[in-house]
Amino acid sequence: MIWDLDFALLLFMIICAIAAITVRDLLHAAVILAAYSLIMTVLWSEMNAVDVAFTEAVVGAGVTTVLFIAAIARTERSSSD
């Protein structure tokens, strides 16, 4: 556990989480969620939970992003409210 790296990663993760729910364009939100998943992967593997990190990388950054983008392509891209 490196304290500085942990702090920076958690800060970036919180910034990504806030940005994903405040951005107007849903495609941008999906890509920001992929970045959030990537930071979460580094955090899990830094906490010695390699199995969870693997699942997060494969499912969170891989399949979920494609599912979100495929769902956005069938609906409206930007939210109206």
Binding site: D51, F54, V58, V59, G62, V63, V66
Partner: peptide, 25 residues
């Protein structure tokens, strides 16, 4: 490799299957 190596290391059936599906995606 992830599927076969899952018994002794990180990974397993679920992760390897999703990675295999990612190649088809």
């Amino acid at each position: 490799y992830v599927i076969v190596h899952g018994a002794v290391g990180a990974g397993g059936g679920f992760q390897g299957g999703v990675a295999f599906a990612a190649s088809f995606i």
